[in-house]
C-alpha cells in the first residue's frame, strides 16, 4: 500500500482509477465482442482496452502498470494479433478462397453469428490495443530517459 503511493498521481486520482479502470476494460471487451452486431468493433474495442492500461499507467506510474502487463507481453500480443488475422484469412483457403467467411453465419443480430467476423475483430483488437499501448510506452519511456539525462 505504502509503496503504491510513492509514484503516480494523488490519492483522489488513484481511488477513482481503481474504481473505473476495470469498467473501462470491460466496456472495451463489450464493444469488441459486439462489433458485428452494433457500432464499434475490433479497432474501437482495442483502443478502449489499451486506454484502460494507459489510464493505469498515468495514475499509478509505470511499475504498477508493468506488473499487470509487461512489455514483452505487449510485443507478443501485437505480433500475435496480426498473425491471427492472417491465419484466419489463410484458413479461408480450405473453402477455396483467401479471406472467405468459412464458418456458418448463424442468425443475424445474435452474438454468435457472422462467421469469422468476430474472430477477426478479436485479432484486430489485440493488434490495435497492443500497438497503441506500445506507442504510448515508447513516447513515455523516451520522456523518462530524457529526464534522467538532465
Amino acid at each position: 500500500m505504502s509503496k503504491e503511493h510513492e509514484s503516480g498521481m494523488s490519492v483522489i486520482v488513484k481511488t477513482i482509477t481503481r474504481l473505473t479502470v476495470g469498467l473501462i476494460f470491460l466496456f472495451g471487451i463489450y464493444i469488441l465482442v459486439h462489433g458485428h452486431v452494433s457500432p464499434g468493433g475490433g479497432f474501437a474495442g482495442g483502443v478502449i482496452i489499451a486506454l484502460s492500461f494507459v489510464h493505469l499507467m498515468l495514475a499509478y506510474g509505470k511499475e504498477v502498470s508493468f506488473k499487470k502487463l509487461p512489455r514483452a507481453v505487449v510485443h507478443f500480443f501485437e505480433s500475435f494479433g496480426a498473425l491471427m488475422f492472417l491465419g484466419i484469412a489463410l484458413l479461408g483457403f480450405t473453402s477455396g478462397y483467401f479471406f472467405i467467411n468459412f464458418i456458418s453465419k448463424g442468425q443475424p443480430f445474435k452474438l454468435f453469428s457472422a462467421g469469422i467476423i468476430p474472430l477477426c475483430n478479436i485479432a484486430i483488437s489485440l493488434k490495435v490495443g497492443a500497438g497503441l499501448f506500445a506507442i504510448f510506452l515508447a513516447l513515455v519511456l523516451l520522456k523518462f530517459e530524457a529526464e534522467k539525462r538532465k
Binding site: 507478443f76 496480426a82 498473425l83 492472417l86 489463410l90
Partner: peptide
C-alpha cells in the same frame, strides 16, 4: 496471386514474434 502479399506479411510478423 494472394501469396505475394501473404508470404511477406507472415514473414514480417513471425520475425516480430520470435
Amino acid at each position: 496471386i494472394p501469396l505475394f502479399v501473404v508470404i511477406p506479411l507472415s514473414g514480417a510478423f513471425l520475425i516480430a514474434l520470435m
